[in-house]
């Protein structure tokens, strides 16, 4: 009787003998993977954490060499200074008014247009959608000069309504585009049922579809708010006093209470005040934002 030689390679791969060999390589890969994950976490979180720390460090810590990582004591002076500085508070007020009105107007007109583009078949719809899509990527700089002239002519230069109007160039097309996709994806049964029950098409829109579209409205509104809050070029160019100037140019030109060096303590304090509400909003609504962010760019 001949014996068949034992051949390891014929064993199924999940037998313990084979597994131990793979594990060594796996461990190395795992370690590399986790090092990469840790690196990404530090890379994304550290700079903002650094700003947070700087906003509560005494000024001596901020400009000390060698670099001081943790504050020697918690110092509220810079935050206090920023929150009592008149220009900064005006800028903060302007930013809130401009961003909220921009979002409100964009949502009202945007949802009307988006419903029509998403659910009603009419001639010129495809062409309109192309125009809207192209407008979402419109370079603001291309119209800076002519907008400037327009603002001067209609006495809108350095006014809040003027700024809100120019902010429509980037918020309205975006709102229409994202919401049109949202309305299009909604099931039609409820709307049809409402029509059968005798509501007019417009009633079907604002009584049935609009409440159902609330999650989409929240996401889109939030993204439009962030875009308006972070806008810099228009605010810098179309305002020259704190009657209308928003926080972004205010932070860009922040000079604090010393003239000799950049007052990093107050700059970072101002930056943190402007950014914290945004970061909190983003962390709360992160799932919605993830969905809306990519819908604005990828989904056709």
């Amino acid at each position: 009787m001949s014996t068949v030689p034992f051949d390891r390679s014929t064993l199924p791969p999940d037998l313990p003998g084979k597994r131990r060999n793979i594990k060594l390589g796996d461990v190395v890969l795992r370690i590399l993977f986790w090092l990469l994950v840790i690196f990404i976490l530090i890379y994304t979180i550290f700079p903002f954490a650094w700003a947070l720390l700087a906003s509560i460090k005494p000024n001596a810590d901020i400009s000390s060499t060698p670099t001081r990582y943790l504050p020697s004591e918690i110092y509220w002076g810079n935050l206090d200074y920023v929150l009592h500085q008149r220009d900064f508070l005006y800028a903060l007020r302007n930013s809130i008014v401009v961003s909220v009105s921009t979002v409100a107007i964009a949502l009202v007109f945007g949802s009307l247009a988006a419903y029509a583009l998403g659910r009603i078949k009419f001639r010129g719809r495809t062409a309109t959608l192309y125009v809207i899509l192209a407008m979402t990527m419109f370079p603001a700089i291309a119209i800076l000069g002519s907008l400037f002239q327009m603002m001067r002519r209609f006495d809108l230069y350095n006014t809040i309504p003027g700024l809100v109007l120019t902010y429509m160039t980037f918020t309205l097309p975006f709102t229409v585009w994202v919401l049109a996709n949202f309305f299009k994806a909604m099931p039609g049964e409820l709307e049809e049922a409402a029509l059968v029950d005798g509501s007019t098409p417009f009633q079907a829109f604002y009584k049935i579809m609009l409440p159902l579209a609330l999650p989409g409205l929240v996401t889109t509104g939030l993204l439009a708010f962030i875009a308006a809050w972070n806008e810099f070029l228009f605010s810098l160019t179309f305002t020259n006093t704190y009657a209308a100037r928003t926080v972004q140019p205010a932070i860009a030109s922040f000079r604090g209470n010393t003239q000799f060096d950049e007052p990093w303590g107050s700059i970072m304090a101002a930056a943190v005040v402007v950014t914290i509400p945004l970061v909190i909003l983003v962390l709360i609504f992160q799932r919605k934002i993830l969905a809306g962010l990519t819908a604005g760019a990828v989904k056709g």
């Binding site: 976490l41 994304t44 979180i45 903002f48 650094w50 972004q248 909003l281 983003v282």
Partner: peptide
Amino acid sequence: GLVRTAILIPWAIPTVVSSRLWAYM
């Protein structure tokens, strides 16, 4: 989930703020 949340932070920070923050760093 943590990584997914963390990468949203740089995105949420206004460009002006990140520019000044990096200038400081």
